[in-house]
């Protein structure tokens, strides 16, 4: 790798420093407890606070407590797909091997959290709106995101040559990223049954601080949990690929010898 100081080259070399599986495993093992334990503690704290100590909403009553699961799940559903898109760029442009392994592992976790978002949304919609499901822009775009995850999961495993699967899935991840701004702005661009965001970058949150705190805690905790899961799975995947390599090389040697 030449030391030409272009941004592309430098970005590449920065990421390739962690392409070495041994170095990644060592770093990952050290990082893992710092993700896992705060994730567990913060999630339990946030959800416990939300479930038992935060006040009920003036019009929704106790049903508002579903928010403490639903909103973090929704945020991570989008964030997980954004991570897939980043992995796709790293894979397509820099051919980064770890990005491919990470993409394989992000897919199922992201699909699970999207399913959780849809399910809790349904469970919230039935008592409040009066319906399990409507085809409004927000709900439909999140359902599309769920199917994008499912497509990614199957595509990346669909080929005998894993490299082709990585390539195809990366293209899908990038193309599907178009859905992310649609999800985000659907409640502003079109009228929907789903209410607009309570927490925005520009204005004061239209939520009492006694509900905002537990929501922030559970969001932080569940995000760390997502990261911890992806890291653990990617570490396992790196080890598994090493096992594959070890298993195939001596057997070939034996075959040659025999």
């Amino acid at each position: 790798m030449s030391a030409s100081p272009t941004l592309v080259a430098r970005t590449g070399s920065f990421f390739h420093r962690y392409a070495n599986p041994g170095r990644f495993l060592k770093l990952g093992a050290r990082l893992q407890p710092w993700l896992t334990w705060p994730a567990i503690v913060l999630t339990l704290l946030g959800l416990g606070w939300g479930l038992f100590f935060s006040p009920a909403d003036w019009q929704q009553g106790d049903s508002v407590r579903i928010m403490y699961v639903h909103v973090p799940a929704a945020m991570l559903a989008s964030a997980g797909y954004a991570a897939l898109a980043v992995c796709a760029v790293l894979s397509l442009v820099w051919r980064h091997p770890l990005a491919d392994l990470a993409a394989v592992e992000i897919g199922p976790v992201g699909a699970c959290i999207t399913a959780l978002c849809l399910a809790t949304g349904s469970l919230w919609g039935k008592p409040m709106w009066g319906t399990w499901w409507v085809w409004d822009a927000r709900l439909t775009s999140v359902l599309v995101l769920f199917f994008l995850y499912l497509g990614h999961i199957t595509l990346i495993r669909a080929f005998d040559d894993p490299q082709r699967g990585y390539r195809a899935a990366a293209i899908l991840a990038l193309a599907g990223a178009v859905d992310l701004p649609i999800i985000k702005f659907s409640v502003q661009w079109w009228n929907t049954l789903h209410q607009p965001d309570s927490i925005t970058l520009t204005g004061a949150p239209t939520m009492s601080s006694s509900m905002l705190w537990p929501l922030g805690l559970s969001t932080l905790g569940i995000s760390l949990g997502f990261a911890a899961l992806v890291l653990a799975r990617t570490r396992a995947a790196v080890m598994e690929s090493r096992i594959q390599a070890l298993l195939s090389s001596p057997r070939r040697n034996q075959g040659n010898a025999a």
Partner: peptide, 9 residues
């Protein structure tokens, strides 16, 4: 269709 405000009773 409820709005995006959440506050205690």
């Amino acid at each position: 269709k409820h709005d995006e405000t959440y506050m205690p009773k």
